[in-house]
Design a protein around this nucleic acid. Sequence first.
DNA 1: ATATATCACTTGCGAAATGCAAGTAAAATG
DNA 2: CATTTTACTTGCATTTCGCAAGTGATATAT
Lengths: 134, 134
Amino acid sequence: MLGDRWSLLIIRDMMLRGARTYKEFLQCYEGIATNILADRLRKLIAYRIITTEPDPSDGRKLTYRLTAKGIDLAPVLTEMVLWAAAHEDTGNQALVEQMREDKEKFMAGVRQRWVSSPSLGRSPRSVAIPTPSF
Amino acid sequence: MLGDRWSLLIIRDMMLRGARTYKEFLQCYEGIATNILADRLRKLIAYRIITTEPDPSDGRKLTYRLTAKGIDLAPVLTEMVLWAAAHEDTGNQALVEQMREDKEKFMAGVRQRWVSSPSLGRSPRSVAIPTPSF
DNA sequence: ATATATCACTTGCGAAATGCAAGTAAAATG
DNA sequence: CATTTTACTTGCATTTCGCAAGTGATATAT
């Protein structure tokens, strides 16, 4: 279900980078192939981890959004990022520190940014952009 | 690095089922192919997540063991199991309850069971066997 | 109004990863 | 000394992946 190379990275990019459109996912630097991205988004929708809806301000765009089930993956992603930071690469050190110091606060931020998704402005303060490669 | 279908399942089987030998991994019911298992164990060793050493009591057997880096994946696995339990399947309900009620205690148990690995007896009390399919 | 650009994909195809069954070598057991 | 057990390897068919080049609908520029 999440046992492939890309699904969790897509969710991570949503949680940590605030990616919401197809194009943004493609640009998130790891370089997922466009056909694979379309396939994974379809499957994540089927699993009810994300949803999609048209952007009212631009008929071409679709906005992808985490469901409650998807938001519940925040603790998993948090632990993965912390593990990767401790043992592998050095992503965004500031965010990693914030996550380590107060996991709950970080996850609350993720939830707040995604439930009843407030238009597009990243509500409280946008979270910075680390890119650990777990 | 852990972005394939099997690596995390192997680690889960080590943490939750106490699997330590090639044969035990093969039997852990998901049905990994033998060549893939050999490949994944090799890679996990290369990544220093597990180690292997000969079993002194039986020259045919090898014992696989989590390194400190591998043990540090306990929080990730814990959150994954809890997520899967909440949203997908019903594995071992008792263990899931234990994990939810006291994550720290559960993870301490994992660490205790794997550091300086006490021969073979699962030290304190062996943890039961859930099999969530995240 | 028409041409161009953007967006979210799809299609085709070669390459790589996976799954399955059968085989092998070394050590243990009967 | 023959058979089992253990930890693999090998060969091959099938599936998945990655890349490049479309496609169709909508938006923007001239």
